[in-house]
């Protein structure tokens, strides 16, 4: 496994710019998530590392070695697709042994390696089956074993769980996450599902419209989003207009004393639903919509000034109906300034 570095990458197709001024480093042994809406350039980023796209400008480096113009079959990268893309003309075992075979590994040894990986992924009993007879989850395990069999410089996962149902996704996420950690694999994990990225990745890069908006740990991205886009894309967020004045945040309907830096003027702040305590404060909010989700109830309320506020109605004794007015408090520590005018 190596450190993979993208240095000032630009990729254009005719007049269309897919990726612009992208600097990104995947550290040795790290799982870096790449998230963003469709068309944001995340798949282009993955394909550039794999070698299927040559950047219009910029460099790709594997452990300080420039591989920008090295062909895909010489890069030694593992690819896992949403659609599995297994070779239906071969058994599961032959699929996994395919990479080592191309690398010239001897027959007995590549067989051992394939069996070992199938055991690691808990599908040893499927070795002689045809891929098309397997379930989606099993196929994805085979896909992962096949990609790991070449001991890749970097493992590239392109929406690997998107086709699977929620329960299976949850299980695979945990299993694969700990497996990758255990093996110390360097990985780039592309997904449109920010929750999946939060669960599986050491760091997350948020892309929008071909540009990198922010890169950081899941906690940094969630708690200190760099801008409105990141705040809105990762988790649910309330973006509120505010007046900053020497350590206080004036939201109009309430004033909070907590912001450490001493900027002043108009600003946009992020308040997460988790930082809004329902039933304990003095801000009146009228419930306009709510969804009972079992573990939580997600609601949209209206503030006195007409702005909307997303909140959660956990553990409130009050009966929730549309039109109920609840009083809430905002935790000043949860307020993050994302944009100052």
């Amino acid at each position: 496994m190596v450190t993979v570095e993208l240095d000032d990458i630009r990729k254009t197709y005719g007049d269309e710019t897919a990726v612009e001024a992208l600097d990104l480093t995947v550290a040795d042994g790290e799982i870096l998530g790449v998230v963003g809406p469709s068309g944001c350039g995340k798949t282009t980023t993955l394909r550039t590392i794999a070698g299927f796209e040559t950047p219009t400008a910029g460099r790709v480096r594997f452990a300080d070695e420039d591989v920008t113009h090295v062909s895909p079959e010489r890069r030694n990268v593992g690819l896992v697709f949403q659609s599995y893309a297994l070779f239906d003309n071969m058994s599961v075992l032959a699929n996994v042994a395919f990479g080592p075979k191309m690398q010239g590994v001897e027959k007995a040894e590549r067989r051992d390696r394939a069996v070992e990986l199938l055991e690691l992924l808990d599908i040893a009993e499927l070795a002689d089956r045809a891929p098309e007879t397997l379930s989606g989850g099993q196929q994805q395990r085979v896909g992962l074993a096949r990609a790991l069999a070449i001991e890749p410089n970097i493992l590239l996962l392109d929406e690997p769980m998107t086709g699977l149902d929620a329960k299976l996704k949850d299980r695979l996420r945990r299993e694969i996450g700990s497996l990758l950690d255990e093996l110390g694999v360097t990985a780039l994990y592309v997904t449109h599902d920010q929750e999946e990225a939060m669960a599986m990745c050491d760091r997350i890069a948020v892309l929008n419209d071909g540009r990198l908006e922010q890169v950081g740990t899941p906690r940094e991205i969630y708690e200190s989003p760099a801008n409105e886009f990141v705040a809105g894309f990762v988790g649910s967020a309330n973006l509120l207009d505010a007046q900053l004045d020497d350590g206080t945040v004036d939201l109009g309907f309430t004033r909070l004393h907590a912001v450490t830096d001493d900027t002043s003027g108009d600003a946009t702040v992020v308040v997460r639903p988790d930082d809004i305590a329902v039933g304990s404060g003095s801000i009146p909010v009228t419930i306009r919509e709510y969804q009972y989700l079992g573990e939580t109830t997600s609601a949209v309320g209206e503030l006195p000034d007409g702005q909307q506020l997303r909140l959660r109605l956990n553990g409130t004794a009050e009966e929730t109906t549309v039109g109920t007015t609840v009083s809430v408090a905002i935790d000043p520590d949860g307020v993050a300034v994302v944009d100052t005018a």
Binding site: A50, S71, L79, F98, M102, Q103, A147
Partner: peptide, 18 residues
């Protein structure tokens, strides 16, 4: 899924003819 089959094989070290 021609493109992905081809890309899988090539990333695993197979040349295009192979």
């Amino acid at each position: 899924d021609l493109r992905r089959l081809e890309e899988s094989a090539r990333s695993l070290g197979a040349s295009w003819p192979r």
